[in-house]
């Protein structure tokens, strides 16, 4: 037995929002350290969306998107995917690598590593909040990075978890640095038994 995203009620969503809030706080702290400048994150928007709404949120299925994908194992079976738009990726790269980063074509191995590291840090911030709030032991895999159409990037986790349900937990964050405001989007995929375990550890079932 397990809980599908489709079965979640308002109380469940409030709890998941709280995880999102704490995760965002952790993420802002980690990013500030990494980038060497203060970063604030507005309260993230946590929603259940179907596939088409997710690609719409990225600007359409064919929009050039930076995707970072990690598997969650241990007591949870799931995946985290970060979808970063060009603005976000460029802000991070420019801050990290200290040079103007012009286009997709210039994406080299070092830039990909930097994107992977940003994804890793943001994911770790969220996974830590889930782990701390639930007491569950969760392991993260090494992140995989890919730059392509938003819809194509999403196909992999959707295939793995698509048989489970067609909605995903979508967390939209707005990061505010001294000079710029950029958005990133995180999607949490979880098997129904994992979702149900997480919620029961949080005191609701």
């Amino acid at each position: 037995m397990g809980i599908r995203y489709e079965d979640l009620n308002d109380m469940h969503m409030d709890v998941l929002r709280e995880i999102g809030n704490i995760g965002a706080g952790n993420a802002a702290t980690s990013l500030s350290v990494m980038l060497g400048q203060p970063i604030d994150i507005a309260l993230p928007k946590v929603q259940l969306l179907d596939f088409n709404s997710v690609t719409d949120a990225m600007g359409g299925p064919e929009t050039l998107t930076y995707g970072v994908l990690l598997s969650l194992t241990g007591e949870i079976d799931g995946m985290v995917m970060f979808l970063l738009n060009k603005d976000f990726a460029h802000l991070m790269l420019n801050a990290l690598m200290g040079e103007a980063f012009a286009s997709f074509d210039e994406m080299d191995e070092m830039a990909l590593s930097a994107i992977r590291e940003v994804g890793n840090i943001l994911s770790a911030a969220y996974v830590k909040s889930i782990s701390e709030l639930t007491g569950l032991d969760i392991h993260m895999s090494v992140p995989e990075v890919s730059i392509d159409m938003a819809g194509a990037l999403l196909s992999m986790p959707l295939i793995k978890f698509g048989a489970v349900g067609d909605r995903v937990l979508f967390i939209e964050e707005n990061f505010q640095s001294v000079s710029e405001s950029v958005a990133s989007n995180m999607i949490l995929f979880a098997e129904p038994t994992s979702l149900s375990l997480m919620l029961s550890k949080l005191g609701i079932s």
Partner: peptide, 8 residues
Amino acid sequence: ITYALGSC
């Protein structure tokens, strides 16, 4: 038309 086939 079908958009953005990845592994599909």
